[in-house]
Design a protein around this nucleic acid. Structure first.
Lengths: 190, 190, 190, 190
DNA sequence: AGGTAATCGAGACGGTACGTCGCGTCTTTGA
DNA sequence: TCAAAGACGCGACGTACCGTCTCGATTACCT
């Protein structure tokens, strides 16, 4: 299905097709086996059109990530008012995701290791847009170890633990989310 | 009772040369740009000799890691009796290492994302052989958040935070090690 | 089916197995795709045992040829007393053989082009052992062009024409044998 | 009506360089030791560019042959009006060539045995473009055995005899050309 | 009878070349 | 002017065989 030739303005259709193809192929084959040529073919686009607008396959993946084409909003933190419960729900979701789509997640970690751009976007997806640190901040004082000034570091540790879990390829048990939060945050103070 | 396989035996010289070449090239160029062909050439060995004994470049790197050819004992945890001080010293060393050899570390993370073998060995290098969890266990009760049963999860979180730091490409400040420990372990109880 | 170890005398069983395997594989795959390793495996023999006794795969094939393992006695010239009829019968047989086993014949020509040894043996199979020249000699005077002293050259031309036919991959018609003889030897004089 | 294929067009420079390199290397090392890799290197060309346009090294050699890059016009039959003399001159030239460049000739025979394409081109070079049969046809009646309808078969026999001579690796004597013609064509009739 | 030496199967070794894939650049043609 | 198509030089892939070289086991001969 050839795209219509659009003349001297950047073709939005081409851009969309490229990102869609990238997301599909990433999900199918993983970052390692994602190829520019494959994307071009799947998108019905010339290779040059990709190289014209993106510097590397890392940049391509980063843009997919930024547009939510890889995870959608599956990483959003719920907001019910109860910080601890919200975090636990989120963590449970994330651990499930890591188990279910380990290949995709590992691929993404590989991409992040290779390309700063991906890492940046991944970080944004997890930390900022998901607001872990903000929520922890908001919960200061509600659990023993959630003291002023440590929220950001605890957020890093939490996400880091998830990353490590992904790397280790070990499936998560049902109560892992709760146990991780317990270990990091300590018992509830009220 | 060993199998009565006849014929020539595996050449230890070749094995050593291959692992040495792998370690060198990994340090020089990183995992991504490490090639089997390059290793074979540097080691003065036929490619087939590599493929005969290792399934992938990941396996090669994993074996290097296991033999300490990539980091040596730079990841060992000191043991002075003071758990908190030991961990802080170790963490400081590791953060410095991550800053100084970010490329190597990121490469290794990429390798771990791609090959379970590498991840396993990396995990072994960091967690078990470096005994973070054991030391935390030993320190139970000496700091506020170091309660019974949480040592393993705190160790994961700690190492995870380091991994995340590596991925984020942000250099560490001087007091980061102390701050991370403080955030995770809480204030000293005695 | 491992062969018995025979000690410090050449194993006749190994020799036979090697030649048999060579003939089989030659027939199956042709000279070009015949490999020493394949022969060794099929024969259940170590490669060294082949290299010990033959210098090249050409030598191997030459020996097969010499032992009649490739064509048997399909190249023998019948002897009924009527030289012209005998030659025609032989030629017909050979042309049929060339058509039916073109691959084998071409392979053999390739081998002869590469290895003098094969060429020599092939020549022996065709010319001497098949005695074309002798028979022509015997027929001197019975046909117009069969004059004294030209038998050897006519034999060469005859066989050469067959070789050319094989190389050209063109199937022979039924009367080709007769026509070739007619062209070369001229009409019968009595 | 040519297919409306868009995109870049075949590089004539690459084609020429590849054929030139093939001819050089064929002459230097022979068909057997001619490698695609070597041709690519010598021609300053990627291997893929060769594989894109030729199916095998046989096809490569065939095309060289067709373009006269291997023998040039050394195989042309002179035309002085005297058929017998022309053929003898040509035959003498060819036998000399076979002696002087036996390796090349044998290589070519090997190639012809392996690849129909080469054989076809070789046949074209020798028989049609060199017009042996035509000349024989023209000489019908001038020698005893040159009767109507046998020219083509005599041409085959003549060339076949040369091929056999090449395969046998025996050098030609000075009067071989004359003797071969005498044997095949019979004495002159006028 | 014991030691020596050659042969055997097996197969690891350093190499060369294979034919394929994908890279990133460049060129052509059509809209 | 931009886009599709895709040829190009290049580098690496993983495989097939090459011919050489151990291995340990197995005999025949020769002290």
């Amino acid at each position: 299905m050839p795209l219509p030739r659009t003349g001297p303005v950047r073709s939005e259709a081409a851009r969309a097709a490229i990102l869609a193809a990238t997301a599909e192929l990433f999900a199918e084959r993983g970052y390692e086996h994602l190829t520019i040529e494959g994307v071009a073919q799947r998108a019905g686009v010339g290779k040059q059109t990709i190289y014209r607008w993106w510097r590397s396959k890392g940049a391509l993946v980063a843009e997919c990530l930024m547009e939510g084409r890889l995870f959608g909003d599956r990483l959003a933190v719920p907001d019910t008012g109860d910080v601890r419960a919200d975090l636990e729900a989120w963590l449970r979701t994330v651990l499930t995701l890591v188990d279910a789509e380990r290949g995709l997640v590992l691929s993404l970690l590989g991409a992040a290791a290779e390309h700063a751009e991906v890492a940046e976007r991944l970080d944004a997806s997890l930390t900022f847009s998901a607001s872990i640190a903000d929520r922890l901040e908001a919960g200061t004082g509600t659990t023993a170890n959630l003291r002023p000034g440590v929220a950001a570091r605890l957020a890093d540790a939490l996400i880091g633990a998830v990353v490590l879990r992904a790397l280790s390829r070990q499936p998560s048990a049902d109560d892992d989310a709760a146990a991780m939060l317990d270990a990091l945050l300590g018992p509830a103070t009220r």
